[in-house]
Amino acid sequence: MTNTADTGNPDLMVLEVHYFAAAAAAAGCAEERLELPTGMTLAGLRELLAGRGLELAKVIGVSSYLVNSVSTPSDSLTELRDGDRVDVLPPFAGG
């Protein structure tokens, strides 16, 4: 995983975002690394991702989120940290 020391810019961090099911289909990938401003929150990340298009915005709005395997409220204003992993989990059908 890349960290801010590798980017050479202390104002940036790198997050690993993993998409599942409908979120992966809407994002067009199962995972990606995003270089973002230090201090980005999960709420801010959701806004950024939703701005990528209507299909992704729909999924982002109804998804649950894990930050480093811990369930996190989608409107969380806690700052994400360099190297964090965010999982985007849309509602799943079945049982």
Rank of each mutant, 00 (worst) to 15 (best):
M1S: 06
M1T: 03
T4I: 00
D6V: 04
N9C: 05
P10M: 01
L12V: 06
M13V: 10
V14C: 07
V14Y: 04
L15W: 11
E16F: 09
V17D: 04
V17H: 09
Y19N: 04
F20E: 00
F20W: 12
A21F: 05
A21P: 01
A21E: 07
G28V: 13
G28P: 03
C29V: 12
C29R: 15
C29G: 01
C29M: 15
E32P: 03
L34A: 01
L34G: 00
E35T: 10
E35Q: 11
L36E: 09
T38E: 13
T38W: 09
G39Q: 14
M40S: 11
T41C: 09
T41S: 12
L42V: 08
R46H: 13
R46L: 11
L48Y: 11
L48N: 03
L48W: 02
L49F: 10
A50D: 04
G51V: 07
G51D: 04
G51P: 02
G51L: 13
R52V: 00
G53D: 03
L54R: 15
L54G: 02
E55K: 15
I60L: 12
S64M: 11
S64H: 12
S64F: 07
Y65Q: 10
N68L: 05
N68W: 07
S69W: 11
S69N: 12
T72P: 01
T72M: 09
S74N: 05
S74Q: 09
L77E: 06
E79S: 06
E79M: 09
L80C: 03
R81A: 07
D82I: 08
L89V: 02
L89M: 07
A93Q: 08
A93K: 11
G94R: 00
